[in-house]
């Protein structure tokens, strides 16, 4: 049976009608047309679908929509404006950290949550946390260089 869920996504409340077990990734991509969150495996093993729920990085592919009805969800679309990028996005462009870029939105969301929750982290702390996000093109060393810069800036604030 479908139900109507009032979801808080990127600071806006929106109604979605679907089965309560629907994985969040499909609600974001198909109901709300937020295509930045990617499908990668459906098992919570690659991180392409990572979004932030109440400040914590979660896999949206194995998160049923019923479980987030009281949470504040942030997706890649919600961290920048048309005039101002998030520092992680800026830094990734500066370092040209990415090739195909399919993994990037998930990596950005996990890194954002981690750096905000752990402002004095080392680059190896960030790398360990990002272990749940895969990149097949081999952009990891560039992405880490970009995140290291952001981590240092955040820590010095």
């Amino acid at each position: 049976m479908t139900e109507i869920f009032n979801l808080n996504i990127n600071g806006t409340n929106q109604d979605v009608e679907c089965d309560p077990d629907t994985p969040l990734v499909y609600v974001l991509r198909n109901d709300l047309k937020l295509k930045g969150t990617k499908f990668g495996c459906g098992d919570g093993l690659c991180g392409a679908c990572t979004v932030i729920s109440d400040g914590k990085a979660i896999f949206s592919c194995d998160t049923p929509v019923w479980s987030i009805k009281d949470k504040k969800i942030q997706t890649i679309e919600g961290i920048s404006t048309s005039s101002k990028l998030h520092p992680i996005q800026e830094s990734l462009i500066d370092e040209q950290g990415g090739q195909c870029g399919y993994c990037l939105s998930g990596i950005i969301m996990r890194a954002k949550a981690f750096i905000e929750n752990n402002p004095n982290s080392s680059i190896s702390d960030i790398a360990n946390d990002l272990d749940r996000n895969l990149c097949r093109c081999g952009s990891q060393s560039r992405i880490l260089r970009a995140l290291e810069k952001v981590g240092i800036i955040e820590a010095s604030k």
């Binding site: 991509r29 198909n30 047309k33 937020l34 295509k35 930045g36 969150t37 990617k38 499908f39 997706t75 890649i76 679309e77 920048s80 990028l85 996005q89 990734l92 462009i93 040209q96 990415g98 870029g101 399919y102 990037l104 939105s105 950005i108």
Partner: peptide, 23 residues
């Protein structure tokens, strides 16, 4: 000389650039 990739700004902001995003 270095020229920044033309696709990267779309990719870091989650713009629908992939076949997967076409509707």
């Amino acid at each position: 000389k270095k020229l920044n990739r033309i696709d990267l700004p779309f990719k870091v902001t989650g713009k629908p650039i992939f076949i997967h995003d076409l509707e």
